[in-house]
Amino acid sequence: MKVVGPEEKVKITLKVNGNVHEVEVEPRRLLVHVLRDLGYKSVRVGCDTSHCGACTVMLNGRSVKSCTVLAVEADGAEILTLEGLTKDGKLHPIQEAFTEHHALQCGYCTSGMIIQAYWLLNENANPSEEEIREGISGNLCRCTGYQNIVTAIKAAAQKMRA
């Protein structure tokens, strides 16, 4: 059993996009803040109340809202953020589809939206429009009205199956 006192810090290891980071954190530190401090600025705080999905990252293969996960909970975990989707300067098919289909305006929701789309397409390679809408129901966009996002995810799914 491991016990960390209320005034103590704890050393944790996070594997983010393949990079291993060792950091010392207070148990109360939220994962979103630790990731941003490490330089993963695609991970954003929108609502800070688990509703908007701007802070969505992949944690051990499942999408989560990192504003509602403690950094200590993620000790030893594999994390994927938007930065990790781009390989050798080449955009991921979902990122390409978002640009091609104008699926963003201000861009604040976009990194969370794309990670959530990534999770969704892992789960379901050929989602219907309804399944896409349900799949991104935890991600709010105040600009686009969602239509182009849905179109982009559909196009990305098609590209990725090809």
Binding site: M1, K2, E7, E8, V10, P27, R28
Partner: peptide, 13 residues
């Protein structure tokens, strides 16, 4: 919003 301070326990069983 930050949670207040607390200690953290990871039990094995």
């Amino acid at each position: 919003m930050y949670p207040p301070k607390f200690g953290y326990v990871i039990p094995d069983t």
